[in-house]
Design a protein around this nucleic acid. Structure first.
Lengths: 166, 166
DNA sequence: CGTGAAAAGATTGCCGC
DNA sequence: GCGGCAATCTTTTCACG
């Protein structure tokens, strides 16, 4: 499961589905150069083995009324493993927190948050995040504007790297 | 286009497709409580009007060989508009940079980067990012582990908020 | 992996509200 | 404007080589 090797076709499938996750299987099969049935079998295998974790429509958050996007840097009082996972679980329970990553360096976690407006975010910040158990410090930065937002990974780099090794 | 109002069915469609972007249209229609043809028409309209910006398979970056994920905080020398957009365009040209957001506060931009390994990232950091025109400072933080990574927006919050207003 | 056939889904046109 | 029905075409899916 972990170290499973993917061949060139599998990687092409992943790249295509990352770029357009709603492509039909026949179209996908055509692009990767095999017929539809084996192509679908590969996709199922990639899903089952966890290489594909899901499919998501990318929505326009601002158009939908989420005007505010914020990065929050969080420092904890205790970095004991139990306290780290406790904070992670807290983040998972907060809908406004879309991403939570543990970092090295001065700060312990970075959170990406969205909110309909500033006051909603402020009340979350003061009422939930800053006042949560074990949270020592929170520094927030508002996103003024987004310049790039590409989900996933650059498959070009992967292929380039593989062709150098091969 | 901009201020177009969505009804409850449209919002349900968006929520469902955000959760599972590869759902069939009949399944989607069943879930939102209308028949397939009007459901498909709504989806097309949502795509054309930009509420849906695309569909993407979510891949496991680590399994795919992108072991390194880094947040980079970038400060620029000049924050004149032309210099800001120049830096944004630079970020768009770098495959390792997946996200670039302009921030308020001390730092000008936050970048989310991925790389196959540390040395690849380091050479990007020193060779491209730090040495780019107009870049004054770069502070990087390695992601030790990911705790939450939900694309999109919390539709629950949206509905809750709309029901309070209604 | 491919072929072929059967089932399911997508899509269009038309009707009524 | 909206959704539903029915016909048609495409895609998915399975059995088999």
């Amino acid at each position: 499961m972990a170290g499973t090797r993917l061949d060139a076709i599998d990687r092409k499938i992943l790249a295509e589905l990352q770029a357009d996750g709603r492509m039909t299987n026949v179209e996908l099969a055509k692009r990767v150069g095999i017929s539809a049935p084996p192509c679908l079998r590969r996709v199922r295998t990639l899903e089952d083995s966890g290489f594909i974790k899901g499919y998501h429509a990318q929505v326009d958050s601002r158009e939908l009324g989420f005007e505010v996007q914020v990065f929050a840097m969080v420092g904890l009082v205790s970095q004991a493993e139990a306290d780290l996972t406790a904070f992670e679980n807290l983040c998972r329970s907060w809908p406004l927190v879309r991403e939570c990553h543990m970092l090295n360096g001065e700060v312990d976690f970075i959170l990406k948050c969205v909110a309909p407006d500033l006051s909603t975010f402020q009340s979350f910040l003061t009422g939930q995040l800053t006042s949560a158990e074990n949270v020592a410090s929170v520094k927030t930065s508002l996103v003024i504007r987004g310049a790039k937002d590409e989900p996933g990974v650059p498959f070009d780099i992967l292929e380039e790297r593989l062709s150098r090794t091969a």
